[in-house]
């Protein structure tokens, strides 16, 4: 198994800070905006973004939550994805809000398709955007593209992108692994 570093700890910090700034450009004081991390892997990125927005750019009120899409997947009973769900933590309604979905890697787009269905259970958002740390280009099954993108990567199917977070895995890094 070989692996290549796509982003170092420092690169990751810079990229997340840029994504935070791009969010501020479009969402100002975040009054009508909610940030929703897609469980499980979008959760850490969401928390980092909220931390930066709050502490470094003094954005006072940010509404954020985490959405689990397990029960909305289109590959249920096709035996290639886990059936165990994570918790959804959304204690607000998204009616007329600008929603930003946050996830670590955009690959086929099927998770985001499921998230688009799932979020409807919490109201009708006025708009939905997508923020992605790593965009695996040319691998989409559905017409879904990110609005904010950390880094674009060309990878073949045998390769996969692994994002590790210091809070969970001991160090910050984005790796491309070949199995």
């Amino acid at each position: 198994m070989s692996q290549k570093e796509l982003l170092s700890a420092r690169d990751l910090q810079i990229t997340i800070r840029r994504l935070a700034c791009q969010l501020i450009e479009n969402h100002g004081d975040f009054r009508d905006t909610v940030l929703i991390g897609i469980q499980p892997r979008g959760k850490m990125l969401t928390q980092r973004l909220v931390h930066i927005l709050h502490n470094e750019y003094n954005v006072q009120h940010i509404t954020s939550g985490f959405l689990d899409i397990t029960f909305y997947r289109d590959d249920f009973r096709r035996n290639d994805k886990p059936i165990e769900a994570n918790s959804t933590e959304i204690d607000f309604v998204v009616e007329n809000k600008k929603v930003v979905f946050i996830d670590d890697v955009l690959y086929t787009g099927r998770s985001i398709r499921a998230a688009l269905t799932a979020v409807q259970d919490y109201g009708r958002p006025s708009q939905i955007e997508l923020l992605i740390l790593i965009d695996r280009r040319f691998s989409r099954h559905l017409p879904i593209q990110p609005d904010y993108c950390g880094r674009q990567v060309d990878a073949i199917n045998e390769e996969h992108v692994v994002v590790s977070w210091s809070e969970l895995h001991g160090n910050d890094a984005v790796l491309l692994k070949n199995q």
Binding site: T70, F76, T88, A118, D121, Y122
Partner: peptide
């Protein structure tokens, strides 16, 4: 553990999932 997640689902305004 799965029931924990469904308990959250049945307390939402829309209490239904398409699984």
């Amino acid at each position: 553990e799965t029931a924990d997640q469904f308990k959250e689902v049945i307390n939402r305004p829309i209490k239904k999932v398409p699984s």
